[in-house]
Design a protein around this nucleic acid. Structure first.
Lengths: 347, 347
DNA sequence: GTAAAAATCTAAAACGTTTTAGAAATTTCC
DNA sequence: GGAAATTTCTAAAACGTTTTAGATTTTTAC
């Protein structure tokens, strides 16, 4: 290893005191005189003493790491928000003097294998999990182990026992629908994915709530969906939507990725955005600003969410609160160029 | 904490053997009979025994973590390749049974503070550092502590004592220049940053080597640069380049970011790409594919680099090789729409 | 059947820390 | 000046593992 690291024993020996005294002095305990505390602190600085984390961990039972399990990723797809997320977590974790254990899923391992490792190795005191599925085995597992965690996203059926932070996709989609309605749109499309992620549930719910609240006979809503992982099918669905009789003049996409594919297909079909078609997405993915004319979408405020989740997690770890912790974050609408007034004349 | 974790002592007690035997059995030592080894393994599985990592760490002196210090990031800028990089590292680390300690820089802390923490806490056995500067204090520090590390990038002046993996920007820029030359371009521009990063040195060197190798009197090369962090200045430089007398017909940008700004400014000035101007960048940043007509660039193969660096790092940690480890990776050219034949007539 | 060799197991120490229970030193009180 | 109270310090145990040096058991060789 590097230069020999100094130990508490050495530090104590230098000052001719016991290790217990040295330990308690550094711990700031009142039963060590202020003078001794100062001497110890001084000497510690002098010899560059840093407590060995293994020794500390062994006796305290804590690791002072928290885990983040990076969502499964195929050979090409990596979560676009990972950077933002870990930055937010990192920022907040420094406040607590806790480090980040980043566990990735790869090879033969399933996400649950990785989770199990983090929990069972004792190398983390708690963790954050992302991308909650409608029925999520990770949650069952963590609960069964009574392992502190906070979920980014909640279950479609709230069970009141899980700590979560979620973006209010429901409110956002209600808002988006109303906005488009006010712009004169009456024929709506909704583009979603087939995967059982819980967020799509809420977003659809928000849209439907807004839709049903209007009693307008001219109103229509058509849904299209495909597997997110199946780009061919997604494009096909988009084309179908865009070439259908009475095709929608406004489409809401459950995630930006779908909105962008729709915009690309619209361009191929010579459908002008926002002239002939308005599109609104969700996520503020990096590509949204760059795809002309710029996708109107909702920003998830990922970094801030990550910070808040970190606070929640540390509370769970340290205080073991008996009540459930939850937070609903309002996403911020970013009006770019992809939405506008409904086309005047019948297409 | 979660369910009480079982210890080696318990495991041994269950089988009525000593902890030493249990430990050595699980370690696969030959001086424990095959029969006993099997019994121990069986029982371990049965009671879900997982070695406590603190105990192990304390006695072995290893943490079985490696660190990655995430490059400094302002409030908006996060390394676009972080996701790819950690995915690659994670994939390879599972091969070694080692975990990833992700250390981020934030708040008051400097990058060196973070490095110091990772090294001195003993919470990592080695680390990878990114974005090497021309003179990099992190390297001095790690060397002075004799702490195992591999750098992503090398120093402009090779000193033969540091382990590194780098993308061969020099070869790439020579290749790019030659390609454009063969397409008829004679008036070249080079767009670079003022920050003292080592990669820009090599890329410029590659360009200059190619440039000087031609003895063509009509050849010209003009350079422009600004601080990467100063977008206003960057745009200004681009405009100057594009509106100069005898402006270049081909511009090489040291990083995609600059190329994209150039393309945006070109569009404003009604300079057609690739008709009037060819642009080639470097990095294959996410935005490159989306900025029409698509930026021709070099892909760094980040994930694969990360994997290779992980292998190198593990070698350094475990074998402490006396010779320097180095690897030069050839980036892959991605011809998209931003480059083409030189315009025929004088502009 | 016994001595030597080989195979198998184990007690104890070590890693570096924190905490507990109590010892030693100092101060206070009358 | 001595007992009591308070302040200050410390020895020892504990956390869970691996390794070392050696003990015990089994096998081999004659």
């Amino acid at each position: 290893m590097g230069a020999q690291r100094s130990t508490l024993k050495e530090l104590a020996a230098e000052l001719d005191i016991s290790v217990a005294t040295a330990s308690r002095a550094l711990g700031g305990y009142e039963d060590i005189s202020a003078k001794t505390r100062a001497r110890v602190a001084q000497k510690a600085r002098e010899i560059g003493y840093v407590p060995n984390s293994a020794g500390r961990m062994l006796v305290s039972g804590r690791s002072d790491f928290v885990g983040l399990v990076v969502p499964v990723s195929g050979p090409f797809l990596v979560d676009a928000f990972l950077g933002e997320f870990v930055t937010g977590m990192g920022e907040q974790l420094t406040e607590y003097g806790v480090d980040l254990f980043l566990a990735t899923v790869s090879g033969e391992k399933t996400e649950l294998d990785v989770l199990r490792h983090v929990v069972e190795s004792g190398r983390a005191d708690g963790m954050i999990i992302n991308r909650i599925a409608e029925r999520d085995e990770r949650i069952e597992f963590l609960k069964s182990r009574n392992f502190p965690f906070v979920a980014h996203g909640r279950l479609s059926v709230e069970d009141g026992t899980m700590n979560w932070l979620d973006t209010d996709g429901q409110a956002a989609f209600t808002k988006a629908f109303d906005m488009l309605y006010d712009l004169g749109h009456r024929r709506f499309g909704f583009l979603t994915i087939d995967e059982p992620m819980s967020f799509k549930h809420f977003r659809e719910k928000g849209l439907e709530a807004a839709y049903s609240s209007k009693s307008d006979p001219s109103l229509s809503l058509v849904k299209a969906s495909a597997k997110r992982s199946n780009e061919v099918a997604l494009r096909e669905e988009c084309r179908k939507l865009l070439t259908s009789e009475n095709r929608p003049t406004a489409v809401l996409a459950v995630i930006d990725e779908l909105a962008i594919i729709l915009m690309q297909e619209a361009e191929r079909l010579d459908i002008a955005i926002p002239g002939d078609l308005s599109v609104i997405g969700f996520d503020n993915a990096p590509a949204t600003a760059l795809t002309p004319p710029g996708l109107s979408t909702f920003d998830q405020q990922i970094r801030d969410c990550a910070r808040q989740m970190t606070d929640m997690l540390m509370t769970v770890i340290r205080d073991r609160p008996s009540e459930q912790l939850t937070r609903l974050i309002q996403p911020v609408f970013l009006g770019r160029g992809s939405h506008g007034p409904a086309p005047r004349k019948r297409l």
